[in-house]
């Protein structure tokens, strides 16, 4: 089976099994969501590197900080709302403020929480984690990027937060892909607009770009696997070329990717920005399609936003 035929969580677990074989200090921590995170294979392959603390996210973050103080490198995973909202002060103080080498993993970000509904559908994690000093913020879009990123995370000292999509995601990169920290990845090149994405939304921008291509319209797609620190250079260069920036994010448009883009452009090169994503409402039980359409950041909505700008220019 090719890597891209696997679920993201399967690749998360398999990569960690591999990493632990090379570095026995790496550990996987869970708060009773091991099956959801896909990590039972880690428990099986490396039982002493696996710790399930039970339904106690705050404790998990503190224990992770203590383990890190003794040279361990914990990857502590739970659903996104619990990793970033529920255990917010523990992550802030015991991990970020104390600069512990802990990797916090938020699974099922944004609308991908689907049937778990509003309580589990976190639209704030990027905003929360961006505002935390010392914290690096990451969101891979496919299995190849995830695998490369995990290797880099394990080898790099410092507190980090990574969104983890759990299910199958379409192949965007390939076996040769290497995650480069601090750099946006230009996935498409064009002139009509700059589309800025991260993690889950990159696939929809690509789908929109493919549809636009058929109509002879080309766009820049800047995919940000690392949201913080934010690659301002690539953004400004692209904005200078296209003059119009669309941000697409799988969360509240307040404080996340769109905000990072606006903060940069307003200071360095002001152009018009359209922020697509969730407009300051809570989530609900629904399918991904329904939520994409309701919150208007599907491929069709992205395409329409580009066309609207093209039309306005004419």
């Amino acid at each position: 089976m090719s890597l891209h035929e696997k679920e993201m969580r399967q690749v998360y677990a398999e990569t960690l099994v591999e990493i632990i074989s090379q570095n026995p200090n790496v550990m996987v921590l869970e708060a009773d969501l091991s099956k959801a995170s896909g990590t039972p294979p880690v428990a099986k392959a490396h039982p002493s590197n696996f710790l399930d603390v039970g339904v106690a996210e705050a404790n998990m973050m503190g224990v992770a900080a203590g383990l890190a103080s003794c040279g361990k490198i914990p990857f502590a995973a739970t659903f996104t709302p619990f990793a970033t909202r529920r255990a917010c002060d523990q992550v802030t103080i015991s991990i970020a403020y104390a600069k512990r080498n802990v990797k916090v993993i938020g699974t099922s970000p944004g609308i991908t929480a689907t049937s778990n509904g509003g309580t589990h559908m976190c639209f704030q994690d990027l905003a929360i984690m961006r505002a935390m000093p010392n914290m690096i913020v990451l969101s891979p879009c496919d299995v190849y990027e995830l695998r490369s990123m995990l290797h880099w995370m394990a080898a790099t000292e410092g507190p980090m937060y990574m969104q983890l999509l759990r299910m199958k995601e379409p192949k965007i990169f390939d076996e040769n892909y290497k995650f480069i920290p601090g750099k946006a990845v230009q996935i498409r090149e064009g002139n009509a607009a700059t589309i800025v994405t991260t993690g889950y939304t990159t696939r929809w921008a690509i789908e929109a770009a493919n549809a636009l291509q058929a109509q002879g319209i080309s766009v820049d797609i800047l995919h940000y696997p690392m949201i913080k620190p934010f690659d301002t250079q690539s953004l400004v260069a692209s904005a200078k070329k296209t003059g119009y920036v669309i941000t697409v994010e799988n969360q509240n448009i307040l404080g996340g990717l769109g905000s990072a883009v606006c903060e940069t452009l307003s200071e360095q090169y002001p152009v018009k920005v359209k922020r697509m994503g969730v407009h300051d409402v809570f989530g609900e039980v629904a399918t991904e399609d329904y939520l994409l359409n309701k919150h208007e950041f599907s491929a069709n909505h992205i395409k329409a936003a580009v066309l609207e700008n093209v039309k306005n220019k004419i």
Partner: peptide, 22 residues
Amino acid sequence: MTAGSLGQGLSAAVGMAIAGKI
């Protein structure tokens, strides 16, 4: 260990003890 936000230090101590066992 950094501490001050109450309740957190004990978790870190538990983590240190687990590391010692491992």
